[in-house]
Design a protein around this nucleic acid. Sequence first.
DNA 1: GATCATTATGTTATACTATAACAATCACTT
DNA 2: AAGTGATTGTTATAGTATAACATAATGATC
Lengths: 166, 166
Amino acid sequence: MNQEDPGFESDHNHQHCIAQALETAHTLCRTRHQRLTPVRELVLKLVWQNHQPLGAYELLPALADAGFNSAPPTVYRALEFLQEQGFVHRIASLNAYVGCPHPERPHRSGFLICRNCKRAVELNTHDVHSALKDSAATLGFEIEQEMVEVVGLCPDCRTSGADHAQ
Amino acid sequence: MNQEDPGFESDHNHQHCIAQALETAHTLCRTRHQRLTPVRELVLKLVWQNHQPLGAYELLPALADAGFNSAPPTVYRALEFLQEQGFVHRIASLNAYVGCPHPERPHRSGFLICRNCKRAVELNTHDVHSALKDSAATLGFEIEQEMVEVVGLCPDCRTSGADHAQ
DNA sequence: GATCATTATGTTATACTATAACAATCACTT
DNA sequence: AAGTGATTGTTATAGTATAACATAATGATC
């Protein structure tokens, strides 16, 4: 469906990203008999505002502006739901949340995170998963869940001279 | 040096693990002109008590028992030092810390974490790293740091019937 | 050995992240 | 319209981590 995965191209039409994410979420919720309530939809939209992972507490002011209760449980519940549906991922090393461009099917998520501009891009983890599976098999370990988070410099920040020491 | 990497074998001589880790740390600190102070050594020893990652706050009581100040900054400073030296790793998905069996040289760390017995085993991430490097290269991303954390069931817990739903 | 700069630790306070527990409301079925 | 389950509101608190400044220990230099 979504063929053009936005990588680190800074000039993609991000409104399109957001619109598509929301539409996909609505569709999937309908077929799954789940409810994309106003607060859930708003949180999803906020998380998608850009490709930089957002902390839960960064979302609270916007919830307040929209007239919702802005206590932490509100946003955490919404995030929990969105994660269960595969609409957002949590990035453990950042305690932050980011929209998922492929919520149609559950998948192992891996991220490239730019330490300079903070953008996070989901990567195809097929080969990574194969390697992990082999290592795990050798040790007799049964994989259930994988977290792959890679920090570094995105192409934009490399070329724009932002590549000074961390 | 350390040839026998403890995997998930539950019957290895763990006193040996601890003793070796401490000795290696002392040696490396000497050559690096770093100070393995009493509180740092104690934290390292505590983290090595078993192969289960420990949270920072779990270490505080033991620090108090040993007569140290047991306020959070004490343990976080020690952990920070130990991480810088490569003696321990932080596992982001658990907010916990675990001893590193190969502190001699910096390396990318990856972990297999058993959701039942909570043990964490560091795995060889050579192939995983290759796969990540390829994916990153395609996108023009420069890798600086990799976090790979895999949750599942270790061989012991699989065979002991602990493999019921999470 | 006394002085000084540096590093490490003690101490208090606070920021940040996340969840428990219970009440009130909403949405859907019957 | 009533009842049931899911969702949200609300208050409180647990869990993780760091800021900021004071004190003490260490190592280099005179």
